[in-house]
């Protein structure tokens, strides 16, 4: 997963979302030790203080845990991770629906679209 940052939104908020996605997708597994702020800042080519701020936000939300001896790890609370994953999925669905509605499709049209598309995907 790349560190693609958008222009018009705060950088720390986008870093929070990207790390959440990595945790939800299992790229960073439950209980896994995370790279240091400095390493991740260099990887994403962002300011280390901004990355630090994103980490602090993720800690507040309970998704990552700081241990005195072991640095920062992903939470082992898999329910919490599932919750975040579901919330991210809901956001995508909401955005998808909003875009389809703005193209003039009704809800039942959208359902047909999704059904057709997923059937195509299976073959």
């Amino acid at each position: 997963m790349e560190w693609n940052l958008e222009e018009g939104r705060p950088i720390y908020a986008q870093l929070v979302e990207l790390i959440q996605m990595r945790i939800a997708a299992g790229q960073y597994a439950p209980g896994e030790k995370l790279p240091s702020v400095r390493e991740l800042a260099a990887e994403a080519a962002v300011n280390p203080n901004t990355m630090q701020r994103a980490f602090a936000e993720l800690e507040r939300s309970g998704l990552i845990v700081t241990q005195r001896t072991n640095g920062r790890t992903v939470t082992e609370d898999e329910d919490r991770i599932r919750e975040v994953r579901k919330r991210l999925a809901e956001t995508h669905v909401r955005e998808f629906f909003a875009r389809m509605r703005s193209l003039g499709y009704s809800v039942s049209d959208i359902r047909d679209f999704v059904r057709e598309y997923s059937e195509e995907g299976e073959t």
Binding site: E7, G8, R9, P10, I11, Y12, A13, N47
Partner: peptide
């Protein structure tokens, strides 16, 4: 701060 500009104006510092 960079994020203040982005938050307040909804655009990049460049814009």
């Amino acid at each position: 701060s960079v994020d203040n500009i982005r938050e307040k104006h909804g655009k990049s510092v460049d814009a």
